[in-house]
Write a protein that binds this DNA or RNA. Structure first.
Length: 293
DNA sequence: GTTCGCACCTGAGCGC
DNA sequence: TGCGCTCAGGTGCGAA
């Protein structure tokens, strides 16, 4: 599942492929990724075809190509659960994407870039840029908070904002309007690092503790990024089809029944927010008052 | 205004 | 062999 490190890995793969390239044509194979386009799939293709790509940017899990010479400013992409960008040379044989290729961009250098998405939660959108406190962003991304790897990210202010919520710690970490880029995997890893239970009420955290969770999330994502993104999930690969290598380093996520790397007690899996949470039953004790939940 | 729960979607894995 | 069930989970929207 692509979270910040995976999306950043994709951005770094896309940038040299796309910067300075012109999109000659857009082929929409399936409409679903364009469900957010107000005027529909044809409008998406018409808005993007002929444009040149200036650069590729990211906030949290949202990517966008900045466009020049188009009626819109940007092409926004969210990979959802299983979205990929894959590149191939049009002169060679077409790759087998097992029927999951959704949109194909024909580039002016003879290559094709395909948006491939098995579970179809990903989407593409031709959008305009709007002014934001941290610079211009697509309108569809304006509600998304800065991520912990953004140079302008203010950890102290985010920790304060987090403590003002009336919710639980893991919910706060997953709230993209509070801090972006963190998904289920890195939330569990960050919580393990600071020995916190995901159901800890955020208002019980001191400023230093709230800050420590955010710092842990940033650190675990930086480590994963250095390794090319987490990829125990075969659905996630970079633009060349290569997997990342971080899965071997996960301390909590997906390790049900295995010993905690820190204390040796068992990692347990619990249902939370209609998904799975993993924690060490000894290092990350259930907060007082929540026993049995 | 804030918080919460659910629909969306496909394929793998499993039990029967 | 094949059917049906469960699980994976980020986002956006409506409900509370």
């Amino acid at each position: 599942v692509p979270e910040l490190p995976e999306v950043e890995t994709v951005r770094r793969g896309l940038l040299p492929l796309l910067a300075g390239r012109r999109i000659e044509a857009v082929e929409v194979l399936r409409d679903r990724p364009l469900r957010r386009q107000p005027a529909g799939p044809a409008a998406f293709a018409a808005a993007v075809a002929g444009a040149a790509v200036t650069t590729v940017e990211r906030r949290g899990k949202y990517l966008w190509w900045v466009l020049d010479g188009a009626p819109v400013d940007a092409l926004v992409a969210h990979l959802g659960m299983s979205g990929q960008f894959r590149v191939h040379d049009r002169a060679g044989p077409a790759p087998d994407y097992r029927g999951h290729e959704r949109v194909r961009f024909l580039l002016d250098d003879g290559r094709a870039l395909s948006f491939v998405d098995q579970r179809t939660f990903g989407w593409l959108l031709a959008d305009r840029l709007v002014a934001g406190p941290a610079g211009p962003v697509p309108a569809a991304v304006a509600h998304v908070a800065l991520d912990p790897l953004d140079p302008q990210f203010d950890a102290a202010a985010t920790a304060q904002a987090m403590r003002r919520r009336r919710t639980e710690l893991k919910r706060a970490l997953l709230d993209q309007t509070l801090v972006s880029g963190i998904g289920n995997i890195y939330a569990d890893e960050a919580l393990w690092r600071v020995r916190r239970h995901g159901r800890t009420p955020v208002q019980t955290l001191g400023q230093a503790a709230a800050r420590a969770v955010l710092d842990a999330a940033a650190e675990v994502m930086r480590t994963a990024l250095a390794a090319g993104g987490t990829s125990f999930d075969p659905l996630y690969v970079n633009v060349n089809g290569e997997s990342g290598w971080f899965a071997r380093d996960l301390a909590a996520y997906g390790r049900e029944g295995l010993p905690c790397r820190r204390c040796g007690a068992g990692i347990v899996r619990e249902s939370f927010m209609n998904r799975s949470s993993y924690r060490c039953r000894r290092c990350q004790r259930t907060p007082r008052g929540l026993a049995g939940r």
